[in-house]
Simulated assay, not measured.
Amino acid sequence: MIQVARTMLIPCPMQDTLAYLTDFAHAQQWDPATVSCVPLAPGASGPGSRWRNVSRFRGRTSEVLYRLDVEEVDRLVFTGENSTVLVTDDLRFTPVSDESTRLTYTATFRFKGIARLAAPFLSKDVNRLADDVASALPRVMAR
């Protein structure tokens, strides 16, 4: 298992930040590894909503199906899964002011099968990816 956490200051009100991140399709804008992310059903996002996410990691492209499991006034939890990994993205929001939000983003990767053997060698790359997200997300939200 690999777990990474980053805390960032988002230059938007908490309600706007939460609304934007509730739609995981936006990951294509703020996650540099995401190639595409499309909802599996039309309509507003909420608990049970699902997305097909295609990401590039270490030169390989993989598809992960994500689901929004928890939507609270200050927290979102997404779970993504394919045959080699179970990913949990836990996003916690704290208002800093009327115009900014502190976001603590924790991602947990649980590898399956033979992929578990690679986990110790992937930590550096997963941390780099977390750094890229922590850099990109505040910039995207500032637009």
Results as ranks from 00 to 15, higher is better:
residue 22 T to G: 03
residue 24 F to C: 03
residue 26 H to M: 05
residue 28 Q to N: 07
residue 29 Q to G: 11
residue 35 V to E: 10
residue 35 V to S: 08
residue 37 C to M: 08
residue 38 V to D: 09
residue 38 V to C: 07
residue 42 P to K: 04
residue 42 P to I: 07
residue 42 P to V: 01
residue 43 G to N: 08
residue 43 G to C: 05
residue 44 A to L: 00
residue 45 S to W: 03
residue 45 S to M: 00
residue 47 P to V: 14
residue 47 P to S: 05
residue 47 P to K: 07
residue 48 G to F: 01
residue 49 S to V: 04
residue 50 R to I: 05
residue 52 R to E: 12
residue 55 S to Y: 13
residue 56 R to P: 03
residue 57 F to M: 13
residue 58 R to G: 13
residue 58 R to P: 12
residue 59 G to I: 13
residue 60 R to Q: 15
residue 61 T to L: 10
residue 61 T to M: 05
residue 61 T to H: 11
residue 64 V to M: 06
residue 64 V to C: 00
residue 65 L to W: 05
residue 66 Y to T: 00
residue 66 Y to V: 03
residue 67 R to C: 05
residue 68 L to R: 03
residue 69 D to W: 01
residue 70 V to C: 09
residue 70 V to M: 09
residue 72 E to N: 13
residue 73 V to W: 02
residue 74 D to N: 15
residue 74 D to I: 11
residue 75 R to P: 01
residue 76 L to Q: 03
residue 76 L to E: 00
residue 76 L to M: 02
residue 77 V to I: 14
residue 78 F to W: 04
residue 78 F to M: 04
residue 79 T to H: 05
residue 79 T to Y: 05
residue 80 G to D: 00
residue 80 G to A: 08
residue 80 G to K: 00
residue 81 E to H: 12
residue 81 E to R: 12
residue 82 N to V: 02
residue 83 S to T: 14
residue 83 S to V: 14
residue 84 T to K: 12
residue 84 T to G: 14
residue 84 T to Y: 12
residue 85 V to L: 06
residue 85 V to I: 11
residue 85 V to P: 04
residue 86 L to G: 01
residue 88 T to I: 10
residue 88 T to F: 07
residue 88 T to K: 04
residue 89 D to P: 04
residue 90 D to R: 07
residue 90 D to P: 03
residue 90 D to N: 10
residue 90 D to K: 08
residue 91 L to Y: 02
residue 91 L to T: 03
residue 93 F to N: 01
residue 94 T to Y: 06
residue 95 P to M: 10
residue 96 V to H: 12
residue 97 S to T: 15
residue 97 S to G: 09
residue 98 D to A: 14
residue 98 D to H: 06
residue 99 E to T: 15
residue 100 S to H: 11
residue 100 S to W: 01
residue 102 R to C: 05
residue 102 R to F: 02
residue 103 L to S: 00
residue 104 T to A: 10
residue 105 Y to R: 06
residue 106 T to L: 07
residue 108 T to F: 05
residue 108 T to S: 14
residue 109 F to Y: 15
residue 111 F to W: 04
residue 111 F to G: 08
residue 112 K to S: 02
residue 112 K to D: 02
residue 113 G to N: 05
residue 113 G to V: 08
residue 114 I to P: 05
residue 114 I to H: 11
residue 115 A to D: 11
residue 115 A to F: 09
residue 115 A to H: 08
residue 115 A to K: 11
residue 116 R to S: 10
residue 116 R to Y: 05
residue 116 R to M: 12
residue 119 A to T: 12
residue 119 A to V: 09
residue 120 P to M: 11
residue 122 L to V: 09
